[in-house]
Design a protein around this nucleic acid. Sequence first.
DNA 1: CGAGCCCGGGG
DNA 2: GTGTACGGGCTCG
Length: 827
Amino acid sequence: MPEAVKFYPYDFDYKVEGDLVYVYLYGKSENGTRVCVKHQHKPYFFALIAGADKEVITKKLKELNLETRDGVAKVVSWEEVEKEYLGKKKTFWKIYVNFPKAVPFISKELESGGIECYEKDILFVHRYLRDTGITPTALVQATGEYVTSNPFNQFRVPLFIADKVTPLSKESLSQWKLLAVDIETYAERKEILPEKNPILMIGLYGIDEQGKEFSKVLAWKEFPHELEYVEILADEREMLQRFRELLLDYQPDILTGYFSDGFDLPYINIRAQKNKVRMDLGIDGSDLYAGSKAELREAESRIKGIVHVDVLKFVRNIFGKNLKIDSFSLDDVAGELLGHKKHVVNLDVLPEIWNKTPEKLAPYAAYCHHDAKLALLLCQKLLFDMMEFSKIIGLPMFDVIRMRFSRLVENYILTRAMEYNVLAPNRPGGESMDERREESIEGGFVFEPTPGLYKDIVVFDFRSLYPTIITSHNIGPEGFRCECCQEQPHVPEKEDYWFCSREKKFLPTVLGQLIERRAEMKKLVKEMKARGENTQMLESRSYALKILANSFYGYLGFFGARWYCLECAASTTAYARNYIRTTMGKAEAKGFRVIYADTDSCFVLLGEQKLDDALNFMHEVNASLPGQMELEFENYYPRGIFVAQKGSEKGAKKRYALISKDGKLKITGFETVRRNWSLIGKEVQQQVLRLVLNDKTEEALQYVRETIKELRKGTIPIAKVILKTQITKDLREYAAVGPHVAAAQRLLQRGVKVLPGTVVEYVITKGTGLIRDRVKLPDELKEGEYDAEYYVSHQLMPAVSSIFGVFGYGEEDVFKESSQTGLGKFW
DNA sequence: CGAGCCCGGGG
DNA sequence: GTGTACGGGCTCG
């Protein structure tokens, strides 16, 4: 008797069973029961038969029998279909084959006979999701029956065979069970060698649907501790077995970790093999699949039926773009997103402690536990965002969080393409990719500012400029140089470029939807916030939509893109340059002086006019803009400073500072944020900017002179004069011994190994000769021993001279103690 | 200055 | 898994 199952599928896989192919949908129902639903689907691709003799082709398709590693590849059936290809309707043959991997074989065979084939590299699970309209993590209903008696059924959850699976709603699974894993390994001199060195500890941290915690740290050496989560096993093998058991018992929906794709899971896999422990963690009884030994770097690790989330991948590829962090280390990312840092322990001595003084192991167990917890909290925090990307793009979370922008955009377009009956162009081959790599286009327009301190600055910028240009001008490969619109206006600066103005084309249409949906989201968020409701999910969605929309322009010019169109990318920036120039012209015509412009923003001076006049100007501009384009009021700044290029009268691009009404500094392009600057340099630059923007130039000058005096007196704390530079290779390989190399050598003399990647800290001290000979490590230094003159000329001067230059002060005026020439009025 | 190399994260 | 590599920084020629 047929039954129905409602559930949220979150992981997907397929298996070939005889002549049939089944997709396996893993997920769980609202009441928390897990289920796996199998559903048959047919693999296929498309071919352009056009001029060829149909009978010959038919005969060929019938006779095709290709021996492959996975069986004999055959064509099962075919049908004629009409699809839109790059804006044109054409007839294609949809060719069904007997198993997914037969597709590349069969299509290659046809192509060698001169038949063009399409969509032959769409992953089968992706194909299935797009064909059925199933959205990962959103509710679906399957009808069919449970598999009750199957001797080969290895499934760890009930298995249901469906004859039909239909999407029910867009609502996502909200109750997830998460488990994070983190391992500590035996690593002498920071060497990570899974073939040789054992895992010492495995940390697990879980949170279930009710928010209940689960904690465990496994180790295989006794040590005194008061940690309730520590469990000691006899050896590594037993520890691995216990890990397997715990994971199978816990049954998480998501297994997470930090760089677990390339470290924890592959390491566990290799150690399990060494110890002859089977890591059959899959819900279908299959083994943990982890990156191969040789290439751990870009590895992906997978457990069937469980979503493995490597938080690093998502943060590095997608989420981290807006984060102001130095690195994507767990410490930095957790610090930024959670406000928690890692525990501080010395891992260099862990092997020694393990061997000789295990009584000191407790802090390492706590460290391991804490790392797992951080990974889990990050995963939990980012889960909404990951789900939203997965839903908008229509592909599994596992895949989506591992994609970079170009793939993200492409897969969004591909999902929409299936909805619009559009046939996807093929990816470029090797040669055409190389050609594409060579090409480049002109970017945005930057108006060179005149150096100076300005007051009453209003900044306007175009909201999502590139995306809105693409949608408003119908930019895309389909409408490029269409036959019907040759007489219509062409792209600015590009006399022989034009786009269809009669019919909205596919690419700008699907981009336009992103922009519209984002506008709706933002409106909703505003309303909900006003009612005090939780908007996290909508904000995640809004963020996902924004990132996708902003990546379209880059995608059009990306060499690996299916919908590659360099003319489209070039047209987008050409329109942008035109719009910003036109806007500048209109502002000038209204009596506003334009002092700066960059790509999508325009800085004007109010002069004698009021803010309202500027806003009216903006409204007038907006009335003339097409489609979704819009000029927005960014902010009003009472003061702003634009400095000159080094050693020139010309204004520097992308280097300015503004102060808003509430006193907030907005600094662009100055060094204040760079890591290889001393604190004193950063501090002085910030303070000088703040003072001059408050019309206190004189004070700024005094302040710098005062700081110089203090430096010379030696009263600036050592912490403020420390310089940091990264060592990037083996010390012996350095041909030129710079100060950072000299510092590393000093560390080496003390017996501290300096491996590439180490950030060395050092101070320049007094003396004569080369700078590198005057390097000392911070803890070797007596207070005041640093070389004041070095810091004055190498840190302070470069940090502020361009700022004072705006007011007519040369470096001498600021830095020569006794120099009061000409500008003595400030003393 | 351009092409090539190495690295990211992890212990 | 119908997949194969991205982009930035540094160094050397």
